[in-house]
């Protein structure tokens, strides 16, 4: 895989208060995002997660604290220039309806004055990346696309100029569950391949568990917990986290399923072996001890499959 092309992001006691409001929308939030890391901002609506996201590209300016992108305080950078280095995907997609798919994808490269040939090549490359056949889609207008196709174009447009950071604000909330799962898998794969740092806002717990390397949980503008999904499930920092993630229920669902139910085809890689009828809850302990992969054996000690933590989450998510 490529070395990470993503930039680190650091929130230093960031506070935002909207004019006319008595309370802070974001209240002294501080955490670090590593280069190339996939971080999900999770919380109920009104918890400040979108506001926090929008401080990164300065669509929202903090009243206090600093946001650092690639070690530079964003307050010292030109907002327009900063935004061209940061991909931005929103729930409403916001494709420009008078432009074709190709013209939409080309927006940031043309703002950056790339030459025509490079832009054309990049459009095809990006459409392939989001699994839209350029020959069929290049010259279509947004109204001729389904919701899922529109958001694929939205993702392609955000990635066009090889941004160091990708901001996604509930990008898949408006598409149906099947398309949403496909898009989740694809964005995870794309982010991994490109090494882009991703900040992803959602109120969907399953989505957060599926995608995140780390989850930042926000409640009324405050950061309640910032940790890996596994740690959050097994060691919720507050009653709020427990109820938000319904951690008891997740653990219960884990104990109802066994390795066989969640396993994927056998993979290479070191890791402990488990019997196919062992519950996922027990397997969770292996991941807690640091295993990246767990191998599943049948009654004759033959390896019939492998499991990652993601597979375990996927098996209990939305089931």
């Amino acid at each position: 895989m490529n070395s990470p092309a993503g930039a680190p992001v650091r929130f230093e006691r960031v506070s935002v208060r909207y004019s006319g409001s008595q309370t802070e929308a974001v209240d002294a939030v501080a955490f670090d995002v590593r280069p190339g890391e996939f971080v999900v901002l999770l919380g109920p609506s009104g918890c400040g997660k979108s506001t926090l996201l929008r401080t990164v590209n300065r669509l929202v300016v903090p009243n206090a604290g600093r946001v650092l992108v690639g070690d530079k305080d964003t307050a010292t950078l030109d907002a327009v220039q900063l935004r061209r280095r940061i991909g931005y995907v929103i729930q409403a997609v916001g494709l420009f309806s008078h432009m074709t798919v190709a013209q939409n994808v080309a927006v940031v490269p043309s703002l950056l004055h790339w030459d025509r040939a490079r832009i054309d090549a990049r459009i095809d490359e990006l459409l392939h990346m989001v699994r839209l056949d350029p020959a069929r889609y290049r010259d279509r207008f947004p109204k001729e696309l389904s919701g899922g196709e529109q958001q694929r174009v939205g993702v392609a447009r955000a990635l066009a100029a090889e941004p160091e950071i990708l901001l996604m604000d509930e990008p898949f909330a408006a598409v149906d569950a099947i398309v949403r799962h496909a898009l989740q898998d694809e964005i995870a794969e794309i982010a991994r391949r490109l090494g882009t740092t991703v900040l992803f806002v959602t109120h969907d717990v399953d989505e957060a568990l599926r995608l995140a390397a780390r989850i930042a949980i926000l409640e009324r503008g405050r950061l309640v917990q910032y940790d890996a999904p596994l740690r959050i499930l097994t060691a919720p920092a507050a009653p709020f986290v427990e109820s938000l993630l319904d951690t008891h229920d997740v653990v219960r669902r884990l104990s109802l399923k066994c390795a066989r139910d969640a396993m994927q085809p056998p993979r290479d890689g070191a890791g402990p072996d488990v019997r196919e009828d062992v519950s996922l809850r027990e397997i969770l302990n292996d991941f807690l001890r640091g295993a990246a992969t767990v191998h599943v054996l049948d009654g004759n000690a033959r390896r019939i499959g492998s499991l990652s933590f993601g597979d375990v989450v996927a098996a209990v998510a939305s089931s």
Partner: peptide, 13 residues
């Protein structure tokens, strides 16, 4: 649509 103006700003126009 507000989303188009928001996207335009967010993309760096």
């Amino acid at each position: 649509p507000v989303a188009q103006s928001d996207a335009a700003m967010g993309l760096g126009m």
